[in-house]
Design a protein around this nucleic acid. Structure first.
Lengths: 220, 220
DNA sequence: GGTTTCCGTGATAGCTTCTAACGGAAGCGT
DNA sequence: ACGCTTCCGTTAGAAGCTATCACGGAAACC
């Protein structure tokens, strides 16, 4: 998991301790959420006293930023591996759902409530773009959507306003499908993970599958 | 806004101070998020010293719970007023969007990342049910959906698993439309409010309208 | 082996939530 | 109108947190 092919023994040890810190941080986040993450508590559980961790992370914010980066990296790798094994858009959707259910707080760390002042560093957004590119590619590989899907109002707007998806942007109906894919599945997933369906009785995965079904249709 | 038709002068004063505390709390949440809400900071801005606020709220958690309750109440009233004025499902959707954009942190307070251990009190969930009921009613008033919308897999599952929406549950295709309405619009809204569309160039309200368009169609 | 670099510690400042004890003011009943 | 009671706001304090600093010691490097 951690690329610790160290050069010097010092860097080797340093990387190892950093990974151990992050492991404890993930454990803490999974049980109490990101807002309850405590540098002090991590240090105590590792057997050392408070300020020692500041040799490895500049502060709580940098630690959380690193966790966000790792979460994006994990999602990008998981989706990328599935895509490399030939998964189509539906397969990627189910992989995404499995990744989210495996650790809801990790999902919320990247797609949940943002801290108003926070700006993600450039390399973090680069990994986020990698996730999106994988999904856009799967959308492009899917459907030769009809011409009416290209001339609808939103794709028409998209034609002049698509400042992302790389240098060679996908056609607007593909980008539209990607956005719909993303927002619809995130809608189901985030409400499910947040517990807003508890007590309603139905099985959320069936709603997820129903939305996925509509998403794969020529007219989504 | 605040029902301060007091009985005793004491209760009158007490309710007034509670409202002032909550007003400062909202201001603080809007700028720095709910996780940065500080009882001490509120007290200082009100000109009194720290522990004084504990006469009015048992603690930080109870204050936040009260804010969540008020947020749900505000949303229920806003949607209810629009529905009373004859707004249809599309109108309610735009009212919901306006309510969310007016104070994103307030939206996240009710539909955002949950704290793992937290259980909302019963009266809070009661107001949340009122919001849902308003939307379900608007879905029921909308469409005499075709029989194929009733026999799809998910509505069929819903037929035996709908433990909500009151004693006289709506038909499964109506509940399905409500769930799709809720999850799709929440998907667009939450990602927009979280800033995940920034830098992409397109206008989120057009994606919102496009999703709303599909939502109103006989086959959503 | 000597030097340098880095790690972990304790002390400290400043913030937070929250409890406890005290003094005073306001309302209430007689 | 006076006394009693209830409640409000204060200061003091415990316990926790983030984060910085100065120090001693160990490890790595030359």
């Amino acid at each position: 998991m951690a690329r610790t092919d160290a050069e010097t023994p010092r860097e080797r040890y340093r990387a190892q301790v950093r990974e151990e810190i992050k492991a404890h941080a993930w454990e803490q986040i999974a049980t109490a959420g990101a807002s309850a993450l405590s540098v002090n508590a991590i240090a105590k559980r590792m057997g050392m006293s408070g300020p020692a961790l500041y040799r490895y992370f500049a502060g709580r914010d940098e630690l959380i930023t690193e966790l966000v980066r790792d979460a994006y990296r994990s999602l990008a790798d998981t989706l990328g591996a599935a895509a490399a094994e030939g998964a189509d858009l539906a397969g990627l959707a189910r992989v995404l759902r499995g990744w989210a259910l495996a650790d809801p707080q990790r999902y919320f760390l990247v797609y949940g409530t943002p801290v108003p002042g926070y700006r993600a560093p450039a390399d973090t957004t680069a990994v986020a773009d990698e996730v999106m590119r994988t999904l856009v590619d799967a959308c492009a590989a899917l459907a030769p959507a009809g011409p009416d899907a290209r001339e609808a109002p939103f794709p028409t707007h998209l034609l002049g306003h698509r400042d992302w998806a790389g240098e060679q942007p996908a056609p607007p109906e593909v980008l539209h499908r990607f956005l719909v894919f993303w927002t619809r599945l995130h809608g189901v997933l985030s409400l499910e993970l947040a517990g807003h369906f508890t007590g309603m009785g139905f099985r959320p995965e069936l709603l997820f599958e129903a939305e996925l079904d509509g998403l794969l249709a020529p007219r989504f």
